[in-house]
Simulated scan of single mutants.
Amino acid sequence: MTRWRRDACAIVGIGESEYSKDSGTSVTGLAARAALAAIQDAGLDPADVDGIVRNDMDLVSCAALADAIGARNLTYFGEAGPGGSGPAAMVAQAAAAVLSGQANTVVVFRSLNGRSGNRFGLSAELERSVGGAEAMTEFFAPYGLLAPGQFFALLAREYMVRTGLTAEQLAQVALVARRHANNNPRAQMHSRTMTLEDYLASRTLSSPLRLFDYCLETDGAAAVVVTTAERARDLLRPPALIRAAAMATGPQPQPGMMYPTLMRPDPLCLPSRYCAETLYKRAGLGPSEVDVAQLYDCFTITALLQIEDYGFCGPGEAGEFAAGGELEIGGAMPFNTSGGHLSEGYIHGMNHVVEGVRQIRGTSTNQVPGAAVSLVTSAPPPATSALLLVAA
């Protein structure tokens, strides 16, 4: 395996726009707000920025953001994805640019009007890519598979059949995320509490998934600044060192966005289990040493499957793990402490990176006492990526 340089780079600044249903501004404006906030948080100047990494689904180009924030000259620009698989990989790409000498100060961002603009959960959004973007949708749409919620509902049903997972157990993922959001003033669901009764009474959207099994639709942006660990020591905020980053497709990658992964011999065998193996090996750490996790949660089942894939419980045990309170602060694996995609906002996983840094700094609104190792994951299918952040 290629040698990874542990702790050589760090995230030194974090920034976000407001998370809302209708931002009233362009995605470039949102990206600029988040990027400038991250640069200021690091104690840097926009003129210091010489690299930008974007998401492959972002509508804001690297040049457009550079112009908006006043970056003088980019010596590196790149992108990663697809979509929610990208944020951890985007940070990894920024670190690679820094370590290879192509840039010194790299902004990584994701910006979207995911409610007032492109609504990624709608079938119409995917239909735009039929034939032209290799989404492979045309092979599944005629049979009624039209939206991401239907895909993850199939995974949830398969997992329920195999393990006996109950709706009450799955509900714990949504309930914990909501409780964490209720303590987070930035969260879209900050003021909206939820009980188990509320969850069970919510309408079914794609059986067995209910309304509250789905992530939010959000207008907003999030950004971080990556530079060397050596330089980070002289900057404004405590750095979150990048102990390791990893990406994976698994041994049988498929084309397209997500639907073709249903054709694998085992559709529940997600790339996240292979990503976890690489990540832990590069970090020299194991799941028992992780203090807090920000798990990609476009749906409750997405997070539940990753609990097993990243080694926090055995195969088939994730439902009992969640029902036993292990996702709470004080549990074995506190998760999505900002509220995550289910209750803070859906920024394709970039807000998970921001919250992962907050946990290392000790500034989360749901702080895990003594958190020194923070896991951040990006979407499990069709490919995935992840980070392990540690305190300096």
Score class of each variant (00 low, 15 high):
375 L>H: 02
343 S>R: 09
347 I>N: 01
324 G>F: 09
346 Y>T: 01
376 V>L: 10
339 G>S: 05
375 L>R: 05
380 P>K: 01
353 V>F: 08
331 G>R: 14
372 A>Q: 12
335 F>M: 15
311 G>S: 03
330 G>D: 00
376 V>T: 14
309 D>A: 05
368 V>L: 06
315 P>A: 15
310 Y>P: 08
374 S>A: 14
380 P>C: 10
338 S>D: 15
312 F>V: 09
351 N>L: 14
359 Q>P: 12
318 A>I: 06
377 T>C: 07
367 Q>C: 04
316 G>T: 03
351 N>S: 14
353 V>N: 12
344 E>L: 11
365 T>V: 12
380 P>M: 07
348 H>Y: 11
322 A>P: 03
326 E>N: 14
316 G>H: 03
382 P>W: 13
378 S>N: 05
369 P>N: 08
319 G>W: 05
358 R>K: 12
378 S>C: 12
366 N>Q: 10
335 F>N: 15
343 S>V: 03
342 L>D: 07
348 H>T: 01
336 N>S: 06
358 R>C: 04
352 H>Y: 07
313 C>V: 04
320 E>H: 07
320 E>S: 09
317 E>A: 08
330 G>Y: 00
312 F>D: 06
329 I>F: 13
365 T>F: 14
341 H>N: 11
342 L>A: 10
317 E>C: 09
340 G>P: 04
341 H>R: 06
341 H>D: 08
363 T>F: 01
324 G>W: 11
369 P>A: 04
338 S>W: 13
352 H>P: 00
355 E>T: 08
341 H>S: 10
313 C>R: 09
328 E>D: 03
349 G>F: 05
364 S>V: 09
354 V>M: 15
331 G>P: 10
344 E>W: 05
339 G>N: 06
329 I>V: 15
320 E>M: 11
373 V>M: 00
329 I>T: 13
347 I>M: 05
311 G>T: 05
336 N>V: 06
366 N>W: 09
321 F>N: 02
354 V>F: 12
356 G>C: 12
333 M>I: 11
381 P>R: 13
372 A>Y: 00
345 G>D: 02
368 V>R: 06
322 A>G: 00
343 S>E: 04
314 G>S: 02
